[in-house]
């Protein structure tokens, strides 16, 4: 799919940046004609992916989180969140609802929410070297007046 626009950012894995990442993606996505519901879904999915990079990728200390947002031909928004952290041993298992290595603080619903709020979710990971999560959502065409 042809790229029409793109922004990239990098930030340290501090939890205060979770809100920033959501707001930045939402601001960029406003180039597409999204409903509030669609925008809410995108923000939620971004929050899940960025939180995972902050919580799970770098359990001790800080690392870098990279975020790339693209608008692709055909009103498709793509968000990619990458870390160079611990990685995931078994991605299929990690994606199952309720699976968590995080204890009482986490719900194990992050991947499930990304999957159900976006059209597609691709997770690539290598233990010891990092994880990338790529999500896409096609914005529904709206009739005039919206």
């Amino acid at each position: 799919m042809k790229e029409q626009n793109c922004v990239k950012m990098e930030f340290p894995s501090r939890s205060v940046n979770e809100g920033y990442a959501r707001a930045a993606v939402a601001a960029f996505a406003s180039q597409l004609d999204m409903t509030l519901t669609e925008l809410g879904d995108v923000k939620t999915a971004v929050s899940e992916a960025v939180t995972n990079a902050i919580v799970h990728a770098y359990p001790e200390g800080l690392g870098t989180v990279s975020l790339r947002v693209r608008i692709l031909e055909g009103d498709v928004l793509e968000v990619q969140v990458k870390d160079k952290g611990r990685g995931i041993e078994d991605v299929e298992k990690a994606r199952e609802p309720l699976f968590t290595t995080g204890g009482e603080d986490r719900s194990g619903m992050g991947f499930t929410i990304m999957e159900s709020f976006m059209d597609s979710l691709r997770v690539k990971s290598k233990p010891g070297s990092g994880t990338s999560v790529t999500m896409r959502k096609k914005v529904a065409r709206r009739t005039a007046g919206r």
């Binding site: 923000k43 929050s47 899940e48 939180t51 986490r106 719900s107 619903m109 929410i113």
Partner: peptide
């Protein structure tokens, strides 16, 4: 105004 799965964990607790 916004909640993600961290909120689910809190409500469950």
């Amino acid at each position: 105004r916004f909640m993600d799965s961290s909120g689910i964990a809190i409500i469950l607790r």
